[in-house]
Nucleic acid binder design. Structure first.
Lengths: 362, 362
DNA sequence: CGGGGGCAGGCAATCGTCTGCATTGGTGGA
DNA sequence: TCCACCAATGCAGACGATTGCCTGCCCCCG
């Protein structure tokens, strides 16, 4: 019933050559070691039999699995699907596949998955889960396992990584709000143990100062995680303090969603009472009411670039470490407007307005 | 620099046994062939050296890759991340990994990915992309490759599959709308080449009849794909026809989002002018304004069950084919209410109301 | 006419693990 | 005392592809 698997030996037999010759003929790298007509004969034989090389055997011999591990916090976070697709697409083009692992932010799970990946002899790793000073990095180095960081960075710049320019993104957000006339701008910061949370917090501080505004500690709350619940909790805190904030720059879109919920609950209107701006431009975030103004970055491209960098390391490119920062972009939608009673510029865009190229942020 | 990899031979040497014995001691299945104390010695040696079996070599020998292929249309469709996580989690518990492939609805891409999977000697496949009468199914059968269908079904019930009870789900939606007093209920049907689109369409027809309502062809539009754009196009068509519809049962949530956009554009309010109900209860769909009423089904569980079924087939369970239908559930949110001017029952729920157990749908 | 050189392709080892079969040593029964 | 038998372990051959090395063979030049 099941077809007997076709092996290299079968192909060789049909082409009347030694398996070794067949192997060489089939491999583009070594084809030139074989006479043109012989190679042709082998190729035909392979086609006729429907030969498919056994990747497993090949891997054993060449010590290349042509697979890479990808560790992310949670695929359910809408941020990741596009990134993962970027990775997978780029990898597929090079004959690689990705093994996805979800850590759920749990260090133990992360370690377990890491072991799993090693056992499967992945040729490299893309890590989106790294905490500042993660022990996995040292271990990967010891094992000579190429690693690329994504989205988050290690504390030094010693590893290839792809990330968005978080500082710059937040500056764009703050500039936008300040330009609308806001002065009491709050920040819901992400967790400070991960580089994105930290970078955006720093960006916020420096952007405020650059605009001659003093960041008020009363107006800064730090979330324990990038989640809707935490966004809500932090926003409630902010509202309770009653420090007169008219705009909120959230650490990411999830936190912004939580902020929406808190405003709703408090009977406040967005953007009439409080403007909100997010970060990431998650898929479907433009379908909220009001559509969320946010900082976009090219998710898919983060994935492709990360894969590209990793493939280069795997191929043995040993040049200087590349650290890529992709440019963020301000997307003005309906959640940001001038503060109540301001005689300033009119709201720059209604719902559904097209993205606006990056504003004057430096 | 790089650690020399620890092999079975190394472990055997340290434990002063033959590699074969070490192998048997390490494998729970065969451990009882080895004397207790010997096994213990081997285990200790393995632990001391940090031995990790080479999965590649093992696969070559046992012809089990401990990996399965998962073909889905597009990971960016929010429906899939939870399902994929379900699959991955269940598989991981059994020592398997998933290779994800995105077909983008393209038959050629699908075929290519299928070949890729076969080349990698996956032990089985989970297919969420099957078109009615897909040739891949025959091919998998020829290759003795276990297959589980997900979300969509083949036209006969000859393959293990996991799916939601679509007919019943739509009946629940229609019952809900009819119960609110709607009689002019439209349906935006999904593509009829895939079983979900077809089943929901049929469910709609029969549900209407069950409520003594005649389904008006004027009020039924078929989308070419489950996308926002198509939902918008179909809704516009519906509104142009001006056939007096007061409620729309969309083939899925994406189509419903498109419907929102079309209503917006036409200056109509939901649910005051037109009620809308979706299908799937996608993540974040409850954050729309108004929050979308919809039919929920347990995404994650679809994934775990599919993985479970596949693992059973892989393990050689050869019993009767299981076809699983998971129960849908009506989730009433803010997008459905009584038709304008109806003196009927008050709207059953405001925004954010909790899910309501399945209504009287039969 | 002899030897050097280069091209094609064959030979065989190897990657690390598993497993059918052979071998050992010990035990119990006739 | 001898043999049959069992349990525990060793042996060696796969699994399928790759690759360093070697052998022919032909050609060219001296």
């Amino acid at each position: 019933m099941a077809d007997p698997p076709v092996t290299l030996k079968d192909v060789a037999a049909l082409a009347r050559v030694h398996p070794a010759t067949a192997s060489r003929a089939l491999n583009p790298e070594t084809r030139l070691l074989v006479r043109e007509d012989t190679a042709q004969r082998v190729l035909e034989a392979a086609a006729e039999l429907g030969y498919r090389p056994n990747t497993v055997a090949r891997s054993l011999r060449t010590r290349r699995s042509h697979s890479v591990g990808v560790l992310i916090p949670d695929l359910n976070n809408p941020l990741f699907p596009p990134i993962v697709r970027g990775i997978e697409d780029r990898l597929a083009a090079a004959g690689y596949v990705a093994l996805i692992g979800n850590t759920d932010g749990d260090a133990e799970r992360e370690r377990m998955l890491f072991e799993q990946m090693r056992a499967r002899h992945v040729d490299g790793l893309v890590l989106a889960t790294v905490h500042l000073g993660d022990p996995l990095l040292a271990e990967s180095a010891r094992a000579d396992l190429p690693v690329v960081l994504m989205n988050r960075l290690a504390h030094d710049y010693s590893l290839p990584s792809v990330s968005v320019d978080n500082e710059r993104g937040v500056r764009m957000a703050v500039s936008h709000l300040a330009g609308l006339g806001h002065t009491r701008i709050a920040h819901i910061a992400g967790p400070q143990e991960v580089s994105t949370g930290l970078a955006r917090y720093r960006g916020f501080i420096s952007a405020m100062e650059a605009h001659g505004l003093t960041p008020d500690p009363e107006l800064i709350v730090t979330a324990k995680s990038f989640s809707i619940d935490e966004g809500m909790r932090c926003s409630q805190l902010l509202l309770q303090r009653d420090a007169g904030c008219t705009a909120v720059a959230a650490g990411n879109d999830m936190l912004a969603i939580g902020c929406y919920a808190a405003l709703d609950e408090a009977g406040l209107a967005c953007p009439a009472d409080v403007s909100v701006i997010g970060f990431n431009d998650m898929p479907f975030i433009d379908r909220l009411r009001p559509p969320l103004s946010t900082i976009r970055f090219p998710h898919y491209q983060v994935g492709t670039e990360a894969a590209q960098l990793l493939l280069e390391r795997i191929a043995g490119h040993t040049g200087p470490v590349k650290v890529l920062f992709l440019a963020p972009e301000l997307v003005v939608r309906g959640s940001t407007g001038p503060p109540r009673g301001a005689a300033g510029s009119p709201p720059p865009g209604g719902p559904g307005q097209a993205a606006q190229p990056s504003g004057p942020d430096r």
